[in-house]
């Protein structure tokens, strides 16, 4: 008497089982990082910034910083989960091939993995928002919507990175990805200071990155300073990047997994 679970959901069960093994450490880390960052950067550095600059974007530095870190963390989780785990599923553990021997199709495998990544970003974002609340950086009930915004940000990175990972023969490309893409984005996409502080020629570059839109959206929601047009543009941009990434990943997965 088989039930009728959509095929992609069945793929999630693998990742959920595998997560059982590491969830304690993972949840603890999800609490620890925001506490460390908000304490060091927000309170420590923030005191200095507020003293000299009298607030950034009309709020205390800690309040400015926190939603940016939320979006950056979403990017980071999305990136982490779409690099080494994808390589493992293709080469090291060959999990994808176990799935493909069952009724699951390549598309189910990809969607299942992306959904799992979405769930991971969701878990981390909820915890992050909780810690932010404890630090008093949440100024509006709209902040609840920052959770789906963070998930979207995470997927806007995860989907294209899955596509990239599926083209790689080993993990050396991932170090390059972190060094030349994810770390610079973390530093220059409006998380730590407004993009307007960058040299003029760099500003359009920063504005073109998905992270900047994720930061902008999360910050507007958490601070309760939503300008509908900007928020809509940010959302559309992130959806477009995630969608294009998904299409690319579908091609890359097919090429790699169906030979």
């Amino acid at each position: 008497m088989p039930t009728r679970t959509p095929a992609a959901f069945r793929a999630i069960s693998y990742f959920a089982y595998a997560y059982k093994r590491t969830w304690r450490g993972s949840v603890a880390t999800s609490f620890l990082y925001p506490v460390l960052y908000l304490t060091a950067m927000g309170l420590g550095l923030g005191t200095l910034v507020d003293h000299h600059a009298h607030q950034v974007d009309h709020v205390r530095y800690l309040v400015f910083l926190a939603p940016g870190l939320l979006a950056s963390t979403a990017m980071q989780i999305g990136g982490n989960e779409a690099t080494y785990p994808v390589m493992a599923a293709i080469k090291w553990l060959r999990t994808y091939f176990a799935m493909l021997a069952s009724p699951l199709d390549v598309e189910d495998v990809l969607i299942g993995h992306l959904l799992w990544i979405g769930i991971r970003v969701l878990m981390v974002s909820v915890i992050y928002l909780g810690v932010m609340t404890a630090f008093g950086t949440v100024l509006s009930p709209l902040a609840l919507l920052a959770v789906p915004a963070a998930v979207l940000t995470g997927l806007a990175f995860a989907a294209p990175i899955c596509a990239f990972a599926a083209t790689q023969e080993n993990d050396t490309g991932f170090a390059t990805l972190y060094r030349f893409v994810l770390v610079p984005l973390f530093l220059f996409s409006g998380t730590f200071f407004p993009v307007s502080q960058l040299p003029g020629w760099l500003q359009p570059v920063a504005l073109a990155t998905p992270l900047e839109h994720g930061v902008s959206l999360c910050r507007a929601l958490v601070l309760g300073q939503v300008r509908p047009v900007t928020a809509l543009a940010d959302t559309v941009y992130l959806v477009a990047v995630a969608g294009a990434g998904f299409l690319a990943a579908r091609v890359a997965y097919r090429r790699r997994l169906v030979t």
Partner: peptide, 29 residues
Amino acid sequence: GLVPQEDTLDLELTVLDNLMIYGRYFDLP
């Protein structure tokens, strides 16, 4: 049922979990 030339077991998980997961792919309760 397929027994591939190279095993595709999850080495980090338990024997039983490997069976449970695989059964879920087939949508068995």
